[in-house]
Design a protein around this nucleic acid. Structure first.
Length: 641
RNA sequence: GCUGGCGUAGCUCAAUUGGCAGAGCAGCUGAUUUGUAAUCAGCAGGUUGUAGGUUCAAUUCCUAUCGCCAGCUCCA
């Protein structure tokens, strides 16, 4: 490239240099920061990432991307996917390349290939990758014009790449090449393959070209790589930990719930699971009572006409189940609001009664495609901790603030102190006047601002009937789960002609706020199981205490202790099996029982127990009074540990 | 829904190229009477998801079906 003007570059250390001739970031790195030569993988010129080997053709700020910087991982993973694709092409010359991006955690590449790739093939591909890495092949960038590049990829039998180029509007495209492997790619890449130090291919799966099931079926290989061995190890450990915490696995181990062929997507709650379910529900009901809610319950099956009126027929029919009663069409409710509206409309309401906060633990059924069902996280039947707040437009902001506080209170009870909030505004398809939307969005936004909440704006992502605030809670493994939601609704009051009598003695239309805190009780319990890894806090635990007599002769006092604890509402059991104490302790520990009361000669003598806490070990001797006090105190605080 | 994988005892998993379905844990019985994460021995446990088919013979091969698991644009 001919340089018409001199190029001035400002370096990260503040130094300014003038380039003469053809200079790449590589050269500058060698000259000015020789110690970083081995750890830099790319440069950033005027906030645009470029290859280290790329000739600098414009003036501006230049900095270097160290391999340890998070932003470098993106490039790192992208290069890793190239190496993987190259390895696959070496092993399967017939494979046609799809796309191979870096993703939030790792990378993948899609291939069209007639021979199926199974997990057993991954070590072979990994070995082929290692060979490429050991050869330290240099990634070479090349600029081609469109038609040439199309010819190139046609001749290489890469129809998908040709299709991609045809979708590109630019006259020039870039390709990267190393040792005969070529890929259409925007770049940048790490300088050479040796930078991909530690990697692992994690899974194979099917996918579709452009994600559309009408298109060609592709095989996708997922992988992860890191510059540091420890990072890779930690990542793999985290995957292991997540597997250990899988609520489906723990649910089976602790006998919490089950699923059956006879009811796909419909959870069966077992006795232990019901304790979780009931405790979560009771806690919530009590809390709502304190916050001025009144609880209602509406029928599971309602006449289809209601669903026409509510708009669900038009917008939600695909997800609903239908039946008939006395030859009349009925539907199983997928949401609770229409039923709640009938309750509201059953009485005449004065503005003096507002806000009216009606809550419902509503069992809803929603048809989900069979392929998306997933334990308690994605089911076809669940209980929503639903509520509808009816108020005047002026009351919206205050009510939303109260809900924000309530949600925070509930989440922190379960140890979720970290959550993310999104505000979604008017979508293209919507009902209601612009003025109404503006007022509603402002009310939600003001509430968030007043509470000094950080939130992400999702323009155009609101429901068709109103804007909303969504909550995502972060669990102990740093994963996000959508749970709570606060939605303003102008549509339902309209459709159902809701009214209240105002101070002017005439009728007005109320505003309705839908809100859920847990979202789905079932899903929330799934999240709790994984969050606590099955080690539930005392107030939730299915079995809180195991009474363990050392031998047969201690059974009598053990029963006395059991009865005493039971009389105080402690969920406990006695283990009278003919086993050694070590066995009984192990059994109680593996069943995640919070406390063990060990009873031998000494304890019978002193009328006390030797208390042991799950995962913590021996706590020493407690007389029965101190024991109960300890339990009650922990229960009162709903202590999280 | 689509693609691929899987379905064996209550649970976790075995079973050469098709050749008598097996182990550990849990359960039951007996011995042992135990002091802070597994005492020993014995017994029992199955229409191999379901329905067809191929075969002298099917857990194994084929077809259908049900369910489970993973994935199904985070775009060169």
């Amino acid at each position: 490239m001919v340089q018409s003007e001199k190029i001035c570059i400002k370096l990260p250390n503040g130094k300014e240099i003038v380039l003469t001739g053809s200079v790449s970031p590589d050269g500058i790195l060698q000259e000015h920061f020789p110690d970083k030569k081995n750890t830099c993988i790319a440069a950033v010129l005027n906030e645009k990432p470029i290859d280290l080997s790329r000739e600098i053709s414009e003036s501006g700020d230049l900095r270097f991307m160290d391999i340890q910087q998070p932003e470098a991982l993106d490039i790192f993973w992208h290069s890793s996917s190239h190496v993987m694709a190259q390895a696959v092409k070496n092993l399967y010359p017939d494979a046609q390349l799809g796309i191979g991006p870096s993703i939030s955690r790792g990378f993948y590449y899609d291939f069209k290939l007639d021979t199926p790739i199974t997990p057993d093939d991954l070590p072979r591909i990994e070995a082929a990758m290692q060979k490429i890495i050991d050869e330290n092949q240099v990634f070479e960038r090349q600029v081609l014009n469109r038609s040439d590049s199309i010819d190139v990829f046609k001749s290489r039998n890469e129809p998908f790449k040709v299709e991609l180029i045809q979708e590109i509007e630019d006259e020039q495209v870039t390709v990267y090449q190393n040792n005969g492997f070529m890929d259409l790619c925007r770049g940048p890449h790490v300088p050479s393959t040796k930078f991909i130090r530690y990697f692992k291919l994690t899974s194979v799966a099917g996918s579709y070209w452009h994600g559309d099931e009408r298109n060609a079926v592709m095989q996708r290989i997922y992988g992860i790589s890191f510059p540091d061995k420890k990072q890779l190890k930690n990542h793999l450990l985290q995957i292991e930990e997540a597997k250990k915490r899988d609520h489906r696995k723990i649910g089976k181990e602790l006998d919490l719930f089950s699923f059956h062929q006879e009811g796909p997507g419909f959870p069966f709650w077992h006795a232990h699971g019901m304790i979780l379910y009931n405790n979560v529900q009771r806690y919530l009901q009590k809390t709502l009572e304190i916050h001025g809610y009144q609880e209602i319950k509406t029928p599971l099956i309602l006449n289809e006409a209601l669903w026409h009126q509510s708009g669900h027929w038009d917008n939600y029919k695909e997800n609903m189940y239908f039946t008939s009663i006395d030859e009349q069409p009925f539907a199983v409710k997928p949401m609770n609001c229409p039923g709640g509206l009938l309750v509201f409309r059953n009485n005449l309401h004065s503005y003096k009664d507002f806000p009216i906060k009606m809550s419902e633990m509503g069992l809803v059924h929603r048809h989900e495609k069979s392929g998306v069902l997933h334990g308690l996280f994605r089911v076809r039947m669940f209980t929503q901790d639903d509520a509808h707040v009816f108020c005047t437009p002026e009351q919206i902001e205050t009510e939303v603030i109260q809900i924000i506080d309530l949600i925070d209170e509930v989440y922190s009870t379960f140890g979720f102190n970290d959550y993310e909030v999104e505000l979604s505004t008017k979508p293209l398809k919507s009902i209601g006047s612009d003025e109404m939307w503006q007022r509603a969005e402002a009310a939600l936004e003001n509430a968030l601002i007043k509470k000094q909440m950080k939130y992400q704006l999702n323009p155009g992502d609101g429901a068709f009937y109103g804007p909303k605030i969504d909550y995502h809670i972060r669990d102990s493994l740093d994963r996000l789960w959508q749970c709570g939601t606060i939605q303003l609704d102008f549509s339902m009051p309209e459709r159902f002609s809701l009214e209240y009598v105002g101070p002017d003695n005439s009728k007005h239309r109320p505003v309705m706020i839908h809100r859920a805190i847990l979202g789905s009780v079932e899903r929330f319990i799934g999240i709790l199981i994984e969050h606590y890894a099955g080690d539930f806090p005392l107030w939730l635990a299915p079995v809180q205490c195991a009474v363990l007599p050392i031998s047969e002769k201690h059974e009598s006092f053990a029963s006395t202790v059991l009865e005493l604890l039971r009389s105080q509402g402690i969920r406990c059991k006695v283990d009278n099996r003919n086993e050694k104490i070590g066995f009984k302790i192990r059994d109680a520990e593996t069943h995640r029982i919070n406390y063990m009361c060990i009873i031998g000669d000494r304890e019978v003598e002193e009328q006390s127990v030797s208390l042991r806490q799950r995962k913590k070990g021996n706590l020493g001797t407690f007389d029965t009074e101190a024991l109960i006090k300890r339990f009650m105190d922990e229960l009162d605080r709903r202590a999280n540990h």
